[in-house]
Design a protein around this nucleic acid. Structure first.
Lengths: 348, 348
DNA sequence: TTAGTTAGGGACGCATTATGTCCCGCACGT
DNA sequence: ACGTGCGGGACATAATGCGTCCCTAACTAA
């Protein structure tokens, strides 16, 4: 069954969403029958007119009865409700997960894709594809987009397509080089995004780890200064969320430094900030790039992270930065996250 | 999976139609790739612009590739096509049957509902529901609607709902009494339809079987004459199609008469006319009511008949009267009919 | 019996979207 | 070198969606 839905959704992206709405509408009518349009439109949080279209369709299909007392569910409609019941959890699982995350993390928008990035490589692709779609939706003329590195963001970059709206967009790396694979670095990704979309990009030619002295010196450099200033005006921030210790190791932290991180309870990492369970900053890399206050000034923060192993990191980061945030994650991370928030209610 | 498909058809009939179109579009592209918009729009019988919207969506979903040579189906798209194949029959089976009947019988519109009226009683209900919907769509102010008897038409009458458009509609029985159950007679159904819709009705107070003398005498009666004249102006005719011998028995034909019917190869019956395999009139009851020429003058002829046993009758009647016809039948009859038209191609 | 409430259905106008149509630069094959 | 057919862009108009209000019928409570 999963197969059918999955395939259909490729051709009809909002199929499940519409199905869910119709099902819930039918269910609402069933529980409140007989009920009128006006009352029902308040319950279902829709306008009268739009609800009308829906109920007329359901009536056409013989699932509803219209009487002077109001609408009620026909026998056929009841049969549909009964037969759908066992499928509901599976069908709407992801939507449901997203809604739960939205509530618990207080994030305006959450999208959950199927699978677990830890288990299937293609889930990263899916995250990227969805992320690219969201970015394309949110982009505006003349936007400055700050991007970090990482495989999720790389996948997003890969799925971007040219569009006239992107012509005036500038992609700016949020960080310097991370000293690892070049195809996952912020600098590279900014240029890839620009190439894919037809936008322009800037580079931040600084190493990620710096001594305080070198940092000060570099900040004086005009070429660096310019990019930093631009970075601060970012309307959109696109970033991944990393596991604190994993990121620290990639950044070649010494064993002592790692111990310190562990000691302060660092869990997640994003743009060089390390957060603990509660979302508090417990460590900050002395480096050049996007600062947390700049992120908070951004109008759109696109966070991408998948895989059950990222659950803790996502949770702690979400506590820090929930406002104006769009979280794109996967089923694995979502379930793990909910299980850790509410261990008893984590079934489905 | 079967379950889900049925539910989808009940809850998302509009979306299933869109799904079908998208699937067929993807398939067309696959077979013609690489192909441009203009060429494709001719093949698919759509305008360039509307096709463009569709292919852009398919591109967004990663199912199409756009090159300077034209559009082609991506690997993902091929996977979708392959995985959908087994579901196609179930998803679009009925639509497909309807399309085949339309072609083979040369009838402008065919609707096929699920099931077989011979095996499940509720299929008749479904036929009636759909019939009522079609009638409501086609009705116009001041229409005269000729109706025959029978269980299918009774079911249609049952599913009619009031509507202001029906206020000025007159329902007229196409035949006199059939001497059987009153709830299935044309007179009764005309009055039921009027009651259900808010229209008016007339009655034809004559027995169905008459001697030629009595027939002439009755035709002189003003009350009868009036109704007959009205009947002749019918813009819409709603009728069932019966099996010739079954109808003859109901009409209490003598064994000799039945033998005669068999001898001339009578297969189907409608408004007192008996048709053979080729749709030729082989017998005609000397009676008062709607004549075949009146039917041919009607703008809308709504034929309802379901059940595999009616296949022959439908086929032969369709040969007689295809123009301006809307046929509403069921899966059982449709498959049986196609098997008899084209025995080898009747799989699915 | 009557007043009040709420039902479904109809109507209308605005606004946004969809859609038909044309044009352009470009890449390919001839 | 040229012509054909491609995808992409632009734009005016048609059309549909949608919010909103009104109407009559029916039921309920006094």
């Amino acid at each position: 069954m999963r197969d059918l839905i999955e395939i259909q959704q490729k051709l009809l992206p909002d199929l499940v969403e519409v199905l869910r709405k119709r099902y819930m509408l039918l269910q609402s009518i069933y529980h409140l029958q007989p009920i009128g349009r006006r009352a029902l439109s308040q319950v279902t949080m829709t306008t009268e007119r739009i609800l009308r279209g829906e109920v007329e369709l359901l009536k056409e299909m013989g699932l509803l009865l219209f009487t002077t007392a109001g609408m009620s569910v026909s026998e056929e409609g009841q049969r549909v409700l009964e037969r759908m019941e066992p499928m509901v959890a599976e069908l709407f699982g992801l939507t449901d997960l997203a809604a739960q995350l939205q509530t618990h993390l207080r994030i305006p928008e959450v999208i959950v894709v199927q699978g677990d990035a830890d288990r299937n490589e293609w889930v990263k692709q899916e995250l990227g594809r969805v992320g690219a779609r969201v970015l394309k939706q949110r982009i505006q003329e003349g936007d400055v987009v700050a991007v970090t590195g990482g495989s999720s963001i790389a996948s997003l970059a890969d799925h971007l397509t040219p569009s006239p709206a992107f012509r005036t967009v500038q992609f700016v790396p949020a960080r310097g080089g991370l000293g690892e694979k070049v195809e996952l670095q912020a600098n590279t990704l900014a240029s890839v995004m620009a190439a894919k979309t037809g936008g322009s990009y800037h580079l931040l030619h600084v190493p990620d780890r710096l001594s305080t002295d070198a940092l000060q010196a570099l900040l004086e450099e005009p070429g660096v200064r310019e990019v930093i200033d631009l970075l601060r005006t970012s309307r959109i921030v696109v970033h991944g969320i990393g596991d604190a210790l994993v990121m620290a190791q990639r950044r070649k932290y010494s064993p002592q430094e790692l111990d310190e991180l562990r000691a302060v309870g660092a869990v997640s990492e994003a743009f060089g900030y390390y957060f603990n369970d509660s979302g508090e900053i417990v460590h900050r890399m002395p480096t050049i790039g996007l600062q947390l206050e700049d992120v908070q000034n951004a109008e759109v923060v696109l966070s991408i992270a998948g895989g059950a192993s990222k659950a803790k990191a996502i949770h702690s980061f979400a506590k820090q930065q929930a406002y104006h945030n769009v979280l794109i994650t996967d089923e694995g991370a979502a379930r793990a996250l909910l299980a850790q928030i509410d261990p008893k209610g984590a079934s489905v």
